[in-house]
Write a protein that binds this DNA or RNA. Sequence first.
DNA 1: CAAATGTTGACTACAAGTCC
DNA 2: GGACTTGTAGTCAACATTTG
Length: 221
Amino acid sequence: MCGMKTPLDVLADAAAQCTSPPACYDSHDSDHSSPSLSPAVLECRSEPSTPTNSGCHQLRPRKKAHRSHRNLRLHLKPKPELKVRRKELLERATAIKSLENSPVNEQQLFVLRTVFDEITMYPSEPWLVLMAIVLHRSLRQIKNWFSNERQKNRWGEVVSTHTDFGERLRLRPSATELCDQWSDAFFEEVLMIVNFRTARRIQWERAQSTSSFVTITHEIL
DNA sequence: CAAATGTTGACTACAAGTCC
DNA sequence: GGACTTGTAGTCAACATTTG
């Protein structure tokens, strides 16, 4: 597998050659929920957050962290080729210099929301790296996005599981239904598909709105 | 049009868990 | 037990949107 270029490698090469920022930075549409969310899930999401005691810097007692995975650990190490791959991807991700404080565009937001809603709200470091490369944003920006999103939308169930070499994963139930043994490679594939489909959908919607605008203009004239 | 309010991304301090 | 890592609560600045 080493030596062969994955779709991610091809994408990253293309991104490296393109230094211009993503095309659309003005899309702050409120509805970017992923398409397959059930009404129940949407209802849970809109629950009011706990009130804040702003003013004094007083820490609240922390929630019990979901870290009872100690017994789950298998104490196995990732394969050497996986470690090499991860190092290579990390170097690639840290080389990305995204625009300072730029908001995510429509496509990036949809992909991030899909991962958050359908796969995990606690992506591991290698998965964050993959998202940084695919979405062409800095690793720090991806980390911050998930951190902020967890604060805004702390809803839904999380299933604690692990990879085949004992690395902890906290996935959405829908993700565990899709696959019971997630790996970097599988996540990469899913991410690429979601990203590609989102790009095509946005492209199609833009074409539709342009053609309808032309039709209306013709009718007026 | 200015003030008020909301949203987003970035950041810090801290607590709790993990590793050696 | 101490260093390190990870996740959370809270804050801030910049910008967008709403309101009077």
